[in-house]
Amino acid sequence: HVHVSLRDISVKASATLNDLIDADRIVRDVSPLSQAVEDNLSFLDNRKYIQQFKDTNAGAVIVHTKYVDHGPSGVALLISDNPYKSYALAAQMFYPLAVVGSPGISPSAWVDKSATIAANCQIEAGAVIHCGAEIGENCFVGANAIIGEGVVIGANCHIGTSVTITHSRIGERVMIHSGARIGQPGFGFSIDPSGHVPVPQIGLVLVEDDVRIGANTTIDRGAAVDTIIGAGCMIDNLVQIAHNVQLGKGCVIVAQVGIAGSTKLGDYVVLGGQVGVAGHLNMGDGAMVAAKSGVIRDIPAGERYGGIPAVPIQQWKRQVAAIARLVKRIRKGS
């Protein structure tokens, strides 16, 4: 099991030890405040859990400066401006992401002779890798995953169980969770009373480095231009991203979001759970949309929107308050 000193953790997590006398103390695991024991590391980033912080049995806790005075006696403190980020970095020291456990190709996997598998990859049972596919070093391909013809996957990627990838280029350090579907044809056809006419989908899906794609998420290939998922995007489970959509870097897309075709998101856009976004829209850098909202018009950079249809967040709050007042008046009148 991993044993790590607080000195090493403080460097990795960009945190500062409150007392250097604790630098050689050894941590053997990470755990929540309420469950931690003497050789565990925990964190506090929400004042709701101050009492748990005061009562914790953890050997060390990552905290913000404003909570240091609440620390219990005997607990080593690591000070961070962003305790949750520091905890995430520290936790990866104990639980590395996208680890290849047993390199090799399962006898029951099928790999085309023209496919290229780099060193130290693990290909599990039932996986299918088609002709011309290229998989970089240190990749994991889970059971029953399908890698289509000509797909390129960069180094240090994790492709989960039963994932399918076609017509795609995947960057490095990408994690795609179980059941995701990447690169299938988009929902494109010409509507006509005599019968709808499918439009051939000829673009690709380009997934840049350090992207996370959740379980059962679907990302369609472009109709003509490529569908693009920018570097560092975090996409939750059960998300639908249509053809020609472009996400900038660092976007956060929460579960059950649907983004219609040809919409473009800037960098670090956040869409809350179950947001629906109409097609052919533009959302500026840093825009945020509240959960369950319906976006039908462009959103400028840095703006926060909410509601159906989505409007600036303060306007939405006034609308909700006005409806509540109206209902109250109606009840009084009756």
Rank of each mutant, 00 (worst) to 15 (best):
D285T: 12
S108D: 14
I191W: 10
G214R: 02
K317M: 10
P103R: 03
S5C: 08
T263A: 02
E137G: 07
S168A: 15
M288S: 14
A278M: 07
P300S: 14
G333K: 15
Q201N: 13
V320H: 06
V197D: 07
Y305M: 12
R169V: 14
F187I: 11
D55P: 06
G266I: 02
T116W: 13
M175C: 13
A133W: 00
I182F: 06
Y87R: 05
A109S: 09
A231P: 04
I170S: 04
G261T: 08
Q35V: 07
V211Q: 09
I241F: 03
G150R: 00
T65P: 03
D19A: 11
T263P: 00
G203C: 08
N138M: 06
I165C: 04
L326A: 14
K332T: 13
L78K: 05
V252P: 00
G160S: 08
I296E: 02
F43W: 04
D45C: 13
G214H: 05
V174P: 02
P32M: 06
N156Q: 13
Y305S: 09
G148S: 07
I213W: 00
V199I: 15
D24F: 09
G142V: 05
N237I: 03
Q246C: 03
H64C: 07
P83G: 12
A155Y: 05
T166N: 03
G222P: 01
E134Y: 12
L271K: 01
V245T: 01
C121R: 03
A119K: 15
V252Y: 07
R297G: 10
I308G: 01
S106F: 10
K12Y: 07
G74A: 10
V141H: 01
V239A: 05
V163E: 07
V239C: 05
I50S: 10
S114Y: 08
I259L: 00
G307F: 13
S262H: 04
I146A: 06
R297N: 15
Q274T: 13
V63D: 00
A90S: 07
S178T: 14
G104W: 07
I308W: 14
L247I: 03
H280I: 09
P193Y: 10
D285F: 08
L247R: 02
D236N: 11
I259R: 01
A255E: 08
N57E: 12
M175W: 06
I147L: 11
K292H: 14
S162W: 04
S114K: 12
R304N: 15
R318D: 12
I219R: 02
H130G: 05
V320A: 15
S114C: 09
D209E: 12
Q240G: 08
P193Q: 06
V141N: 03
E134G: 03
L77Q: 04
R318C: 06
D210P: 05
A255V: 13
H158M: 08
I229D: 02
V197T: 11
V269W: 02
D226I: 02
A60Q: 01
I330S: 14
I79Y: 02
A98N: 15
P32G: 12
V174Y: 02
I117N: 08
I153N: 01
S80M: 10
Q315A: 15
V207R: 04
P309K: 07
H177D: 13
L44W: 03
P103F: 07
K12V: 15
T65W: 10
R28F: 10
S190I: 12
V199H: 06
V320N: 00
I135V: 09
A127Y: 06
R221M: 11
K332H: 13
